[in-house]
Design a protein around this nucleic acid. Sequence first.
DNA 1: GCTGGCCTACTCGGATACTTTCTGTCCGAGTACTGACGG
DNA 2: CCGTCAGTACTCGGACAGAAAGTATCCGAGTAGGCCAGC
Lengths: 158, 158
Amino acid sequence: MKFKAGIEQSIYILLILSRIPHDHYITSDDISLRLRLSPSYTKKLMKLLVHEGLINSTTGKNGGFALAKSPSEITLTNIFNAIEGRGALYNDSDLLSNLAGENNIKKSHCSIKLVMDTIENGWKALLDQVTLKQLEEDIMVSFDVSGIDKWINKVIKK
Amino acid sequence: MKFKAGIEQSIYILLILSRIPHDHYITSDDISLRLRLSPSYTKKLMKLLVHEGLINSTTGKNGGFALAKSPSEITLTNIFNAIEGRGALYNDSDLLSNLAGENNIKKSHCSIKLVMDTIENGWKALLDQVTLKQLEEDIMVSFDVSGIDKWINKVIKK
DNA sequence: GCTGGCCTACTCGGATACTTTCTGTCCGAGTACTGACGG
DNA sequence: CCGTCAGTACTCGGACAGAAAGTATCCGAGTAGGCCAGC
């Protein structure tokens, strides 16, 4: 039970995309080069982000990726759903009926499942509070972004 | 990113142990038989629970396991720590320095790491609110436990 | 000189291997009961 | 008859495979720009 590494990588990918001027694109290869990630896996992640509707992709020469929403509209929940999928954290394997014996269940729902769902919802609520915009602002405090912007201007395409 | 199946299994193991009279023991094989779990893996899980100090084990003939704490003192956090380990949910892979370029970090800590830690703490707080006693009471509502207690009286040893 | 079509180069996208984690198994270490033997 | 001692049966405990998920890769599909030929 750990975050996929892809979660962190996606965050950085989106942070880069958030600094690209409107109507411009950047290739996945440029991003993976900068972040020193596997180019193929970066593409795979970005594909997932496209599916989730967080970013747009343009194919062909001068193609690339761009943010589909404003950074303030993208939350960690979105990223989490895109990369980890929407499946529940917890799937009960019906141990309760084994424990209780057959024909002894009054409720259809296992109460442990209920508790777990509650926890999962609380967890999602935590993720929902954090937007990409916030992360970006936090990052900007910790170092000078001009170097990044300079690099971005070199690699973006219209 | 999912709960290990072992988490749920451990919960049920502990629920069984919580209904055993004081100073009595039950073997892992009896438990795995009742819950229809792999006997070996059940032992493995219970070993982890012993390491965490949640249950006691006695070896030898008439040996077995028993709860080491009262159910009200055992939280989901304890179980989680025992099974999943105490490692952080999130390990940053220092992508920030790749993004920023070397020699450009003002702060020593990546702010994303900070956000993630905040979320992880919130998550642990959620788990901490749920005790084994609560789970037991919830379960008792949903079905008749007399069948379980009867079975327990048959298999426990002093 | 302008327009249309074709070609090429470059992009994303999906099917395919490799690695790590999780699950499950087997055999050895240790202890309490049991039974026999001797006093 | 009672106490002691050794054997045995049963338990947990740790080292060893198999399965599943996560990570990384390669090659094909598709598009936009550039070049050339024809008008």
